[in-house]
Design a protein around this nucleic acid. Structure first.
Lengths: 158, 158
DNA sequence: CAGTGTTGGTCAACCTGGTTGTCCAGGTCA
DNA sequence: TGACCTGGACAACCAGGTTGACCAACACTG
């Protein structure tokens, strides 16, 4: 006898996510990153974590290399990364994060944590930690990988 | 001192959502609805809840009426709904859900609840209920409306 | 050192689920 | 009657992916 339906649970999860992410995007815009999209942040994080080429990034984000290439193009266009051909392998194009890109993920991380802190205040630290543990269970038993949020394509902020 | 970062929390929420929804879509496919998409379900639910025209549906889902019209076209194409011009107002096109459409949301509701039940077993009924209450808090203080999941555009199942 | 296979990147076309912007016919109401 | 509001549709566009085809460069093997 559940008070809520499974469909509602789905909407609660998605709603919470969008609430969190929208807040971050909105706040990022006011801090000098008006054109930053969630997918950009994920990509830059992956690059920072070691994905230094398009194919690499594709594997890491679990998307096609064409999609990765498009993302990189967007990042270059916005000045978050630069690319230069690898001297040791002409085919390869090494990605390097610019200061602007570092700034973006630094700010974004801070904002994410700020919002999380607000949630923590409302829920209590132990409760939020438990919630995260529970969510991790749902995610954990699946092929979904937190380090590979290719499935995490954000939606445009309305 | 939080064990997890805010960014991880976002990924946990989204990952849980996608886990849940992907499962439902996958299971729906095996039960005779291979072409059903999450957005279709939300739309049909909204129509069933009273949105009997394109403009109506648009308001309810908080999307543009053009987007609503496209969705309706997709639903018609798949045989989930039919449209007929309102005799009392020539402009209006009334939407009616077909038996096939009813079947879809019936099955979908059942599957959603099945998956939720599985989560309940793993977490415990009280814990899941609390989790939902907590999530509801995050969603509750925002313009986001559970009855208007226009922001809930699903992603293609990979 | 050739030949074969794998890998990195790119072009092009397409899909989903939205968005603007424009327009008009039909209904509403002073 | 005239001024507005509303339902719908057309066209073009966007983000963030997808397939498929392809080529040049590297790597491995005999």
């Amino acid at each position: 006898m559940s008070s809520r339906s499974g469909a509602d649970l789905a909407l609660l999860l998605l709603g919470s996510y969008r609430n969190l992410v929208d807040e971050v995007v909105r706040e990022l815009a006011t801090r000098g990153y008006p054109d930053a999209r969630p997918s950009h942040e994920y990509a830059i994080r992956a690059i920072r974590a070691g994905a230094d080429s398009a194919s690499d990034l594709a594997r890491r984000l679990a998307i096609t290399k064409q999609a990765a290439a498009k993302t990189i193009a967007a990042l270059v266009e916005r000045g978050y990364v630069t690319t230069e051909t690898d001297p040791a392998d002409i085919r390869r194009k090494n990605i390097r994060i610019t200061d602007h890109g570092i700034g973006l993920i630094t700010e974004s991380t801070a904002i994410f944590d700020e919002v999380r802190a607000r949630w923590e205040v409302r829920l209590g630290a132990a409760e939020l930690a438990e919630l995260e543990t529970q969510l991790a269970q749902f995610v954990g038993d699946s092929p979904i990988n937190l380090d590979a949020p290719g499935w995490a394509a954000g939606q445009e902020l309305r």
